[in-house]
Design a protein around this nucleic acid. Structure first.
Length: 137
DNA sequence: GCCAACGTTGGC
DNA sequence: GCCAACGTTGGC
């Protein structure tokens, strides 16, 4: 089991949209590092869902239901997509500010490489984020 | 193959 | 809305 984090602008496609639709194709990735992470995803892996640009917080957990396949929205080039399903919404969103203020989460690419939209997350980091997101302040 | 210029992402 | 950081493109 591996853990990941994906970013989406809530204006484009929010976690609530994913809950509403029940499943989505995670396509449109046009960055090699992000694509390679997509290809590393295995069925059943858990994926943190982060709202970028607006919100700036981890809002929920999704899971991989279909492993990487050719991105049908790519007109040219070698790109991949995966399918994601919602698992659950966090009781409270975990903001980037809190993540940055947490010493154990400083190694997250989210903190270190701002522009990466698909990234691996260590199990300990994943568990901590879940735990923080389940705890009311 | 290097590097400057340009485009895009995303935090602020 | 601005701009820094990063990736990509293209001229040499």
């Amino acid at each position: 089991m591996n853990y990941w984090l994906v970013k989406s602008e809530p204006d484009e496609y929010s976690f609530d949209d994913l809950i509403k639709e029940g499943k989505t194709m995670w396509d449109g990735i046009r960055n090699y590092a992000a694509r390679n992470h997509l290809r590393g995803m295995k069925k059943g892996d858990l994926v943190l869902y982060y709202h970028s640009r607006k919100g700036l917080e981890v809002v929920g957990v999704s899971k991989v239901v279909k492993e990487a396949y050719p991105d049908p929205t790519a007109e040219k080039g070698d790109w991949s997509a995966v399918d994601l399903e919602p698992v659950k919404k966090l009781e409270r969103p975990l903001t980037l500010k809190e993540i940055k203020a947490t010493p154990e989460l400083q190694e997250l690419p989210l903190v270190r490489i701002g522009r990466l939209s698909v990234m691996p997350v260590q199990e300990e980091e994943f568990q901590l984020i879940l735990q923080m997101g389940e705890t009311e302040l």
